[in-house]
Design a protein around this nucleic acid. Sequence first.
DNA 1: TTGAAAGCGCTAACAT
DNA 2: ATGTTAGCGCTTTCAA
Lengths: 330, 330
Amino acid sequence: MSDITINDVAKRAGVSKATVSRVISNSSKVSKKTREIVEKVVSDLNYIPNSAAQNLSQNNSRIIGIVLNSEDLNPLLNNTFFSTAINAISEFLIENKYYTIYIHCNNSKKEKEYIDFLVKSRRVDGLIFLRNYDDESIFNYLEEISFPFSIIGKPNHAEKYLWVDNDNIKSAYDVTKKMIEQNRKNFIFIGGSMKLNVTKNRYTGFINALDEYNIKFNKEYLINAKFNEKDAYNKLLNIVKQNNIDAIFTTDDIFAIAATKAIESINRTDIKVSGYNNSFLRKYVEKDFLTVDINVEKLAIEASKLVLKKVKKEKIEINYSIVKSKLIEK
Amino acid sequence: MSDITINDVAKRAGVSKATVSRVISNSSKVSKKTREIVEKVVSDLNYIPNSAAQNLSQNNSRIIGIVLNSEDLNPLLNNTFFSTAINAISEFLIENKYYTIYIHCNNSKKEKEYIDFLVKSRRVDGLIFLRNYDDESIFNYLEEISFPFSIIGKPNHAEKYLWVDNDNIKSAYDVTKKMIEQNRKNFIFIGGSMKLNVTKNRYTGFINALDEYNIKFNKEYLINAKFNEKDAYNKLLNIVKQNNIDAIFTTDDIFAIAATKAIESINRTDIKVSGYNNSFLRKYVEKDFLTVDINVEKLAIEASKLVLKKVKKEKIEINYSIVKSKLIEK
DNA sequence: TTGAAAGCGCTAACAT
DNA sequence: ATGTTAGCGCTTTCAA
């Protein structure tokens, strides 16, 4: 490695390193002539500034951390959410001269410690949380030390933080309404833990639609399942067998697929099913179902924009961004 | 933000910052007493060293870059390879006090430029390439400037670089042999581009097994497909319909699924199918097929180990690592 | 418009 | 065993 420094450039160009710095940062008043000379040398020597030196003197890192808690990993592996989000974020940030560091907290207890280390060592300028958790203490902490971060998924204290999300109440309402209009009345609801806002909100939208049509929902048909196929499958099968079910609303295509296979296994393909995420997995079941495209790219980019604004201390008019989701029928 | 520095700690502990530095780096001889005093202050003030300053004076970054070329993105999205690899790498590296930066080259032409920037700006100490490409000029360049990197997937110039891979020739041989032993003779081979070493090697192993049993392979049954279901599906269907096929060897579960659906559609489920990657997608087809678990975690970790050794200038006995894959039958 | 010089927070060689 | 000091490579004030 040659390791050209600003001094080499300065010497060769016959100027001071301050001038080179000015040309590099593309700012301050430098005469056109000087600029051209310096630029020529920079290009000849293929000079690229040492980032550690820049970071030290500017007290930043130009790195945004993407944080994933390991509890989220399993569901995400069955999903393109993770890859899509990371790719979208990194693509967006790199256009803005920021890099993305990826932190996977494989140990929930260590999360605070990890993040504290990152923040205090100034290794990152900001953070993006891939998910909202029930426990928001880490958000609270970061807010206290006024460290920039944004969250994908509306947090409980939505007014305090920067976040992006779909309107889950509305999308669930729309999906449910669609099924009701197809003469469905006897619903099962399958979702993840009710501790997750996403489950709560979709449940709310679901109930709203039923209320509007004066359909009442039997709480015994509310299934909170683990994110693996078998769990939802088994619970569901019991209910369907013994009851007059004609529709199954689920909060994830994974559940929807489980549901589809369950009803196929007992030849009840007349039952309507809906899911979320517009997963490519839908290709792998015979019977298609309703789903919702949550637009992960957009969520990722909006979250990046928000945290970047905060980092750059730009004015933030609205502390959140609602990304439109889309009902997919075929 | 308080931004405690080494000076604050030194002052408070009544020692010089050199001593604090020694305590931090946990090295040199510091008296037990002094160490305890300093450690107390460090913990009281919750001091964490500024990474930019450390990086600048040590001329490193403690960051390893994971590079993905966008050409690879599409196939990877249908796969857990990407998420699994990134998570395994980052988990391993963080235990070794390294961070992972993720670079997605959305523009192949810019790859060299991006990487050059990362390297020259000293933003990364090493790189891990998630895939091997036919064009190895970037590897060649990095080798010339002796910048540490490793590759997941055996490169053409295997002796020159650090890499990890499975023994694809052997695994393909094993799979094929297994099918032959089940009295299969008339094979179709479906793989990606023959420019990819992985395709070439699996094809070689496939042919080796056939040769051993004196079965000859009709080259017209060699399908090089794009990584989307339809492509393989259509080509395949034509061949199967008109010929006496009894087995389909494929280099990816995605292809295997396409194949399975194709043969199901014409009621030829008597045909044996094999794939690669032990994908969770297998759950979503009726008829199961043979597959190979390539052990992505291990590949990722071995690649991390190799590049880390290079970064730390440790002696590297063998420049590659062959990770055992596993034939999965049910 | 340009340069000199201080300083960012740390490490490491040297001295004691 | 500990302190002094000179960098690391940049940015940024201040002066000219």
